[in-house]
């Protein structure tokens, strides 16, 4: 059993009278791919937005533990620090690339913070200090590494908005990986991909898990992706966790089957009688 990277405890998110997530607890273990699944409107993206700091949860605690033993309480951190300090990166359900910037520029923006420090908060950078040039070169090399992994080397100097949809998905993941995260949150990475692109994506995710010290938490509707690559699945329905375990366990859990396929409606049957 590997160690816990992120533990979510009693997470509750209310929007006015609506409880989107209700007393949710689960753990993301180090080096694993954890999938968060559930029918539409189950509150999966809300959980993501809480973890990455876009929402402040109404109740609950989210603790991220780094390998060096340092703990981060995500619910208390502003969103940009969750990426920069706690090293959580994310992608979006509707792709959010910097479409007017080139693919390479997108990957350099992702390395903003280390470069900002290297440029002496721009003051040294204006005078073209050598140490900054070296750091920038390093950043470009890092970007090239991820371009190769994502199979986008040929498009490095093209505007991101000009890429086909599948490439944009992979670029968004590559951009998130350029921030050197310990936890990568993917919001429906396979949505709208054809089988070929879907296979490319699986391959990319498997390399990330194999070669990097990055654990993955993903939301996905495409069960072929979920069952193939995830080690651990959490099922949500109406903001409540209904199942949690290995793919095989979840697949056969009657509660999951009921949530996805609907139960035989005993109550309505009774009403007819």
């Amino acid at each position: 059993m590997s160690t816990t990277l992120l533990s979510i405890d009693h997470l509750t998110m209310r929007f006015g009278g609506l409880t989107a997530v209700n007393d949710l607890s689960f753990a993301v273990r180090k080096g694993e791919i954890t999938a968060l699944i559930g029918p539409n409107g189950a509150g999966k993206t809300t959980v993501f937005n809480c973890i990455t700091g876009f929402y402040k949860p109404t109740e609950g605690m989210m603790t991220l533990r780094h390998a060096n033993g340092r703990d981060f309480l995500l619910e208390r951190m502003p969103d940009h620090e969750i990426n920069w300090k706690a090293k959580v990166a994310r992608t979006f359900q509707n792709i959010r690339l910097f479409s007017g910037m080139t693919v390479l520029e997108n990957l350099l923006v992702a390395q903003h913070n280390p470069l900002m420090v290297a440029s002496g908060f721009s003051i040294l950078g204006i005078f073209g200090v050598k140490s900054f040039k070296a750091k920038e070169k390093e950043a470009v090399e890092h970007a090239v590494y991820w371009l190769e992994k994502a199979g986008l080397m040929d498009r490095a100097d093209d505007p991101a908005g000009d890429l086909p949809y599948g490439d944009q998905r992979r670029l968004e993941i590559a951009r998130a990986m350029c921030t050197r995260p310990t936890l990568l949150c993917l919001d429906e990475p396979a949505a709208g991909l054809n089988p070929k692109e879907s296979a490319d994506l699986n391959a990319l995710l498997m390399t990330i898990r194999k070669d990097h010290d990055t654990s993955i938490l993903l939301i996905e509707h495409d069960m072929s992706v979920v069952m193939k690559i995830s080690d651990h699945i959490v099922v949500l329905d109406y903001g409540v966790k209904i199942s949690d375990g290995t793919p095989d366990f979840v697949k056969n859990d009657p509660k999951v089957i009921a949530a996805y396929l609907g139960v035989e409606d005993d109550e309505s049957l009774e009403a007819i009688r």
Binding site: T52, G53, F54, D79, H80, E81, I82, N83, W84, A89, R90, F92, R96, L97, F98, S99, G100, M101, E105, L108, V109, A110, Q111, H112, N113, L115, M116, S119, F121, S122, G125, I126, R175, A176, T179
Partner: peptide
């Protein structure tokens, strides 16, 4: 000069997509 520095790229990224900027750790 600034356009070629991280701060300039962050400005342009901000113009392109502010939410993506926040998710990438840009203040």
């Amino acid at each position: 000069k600034l356009r070629r520095l991280p701060v300039g790229r962050a400005w342009e990224a901000l113009r392109e997509d502010e939410i993506a900027c926040r998710s990438l750790g840009i203040n």
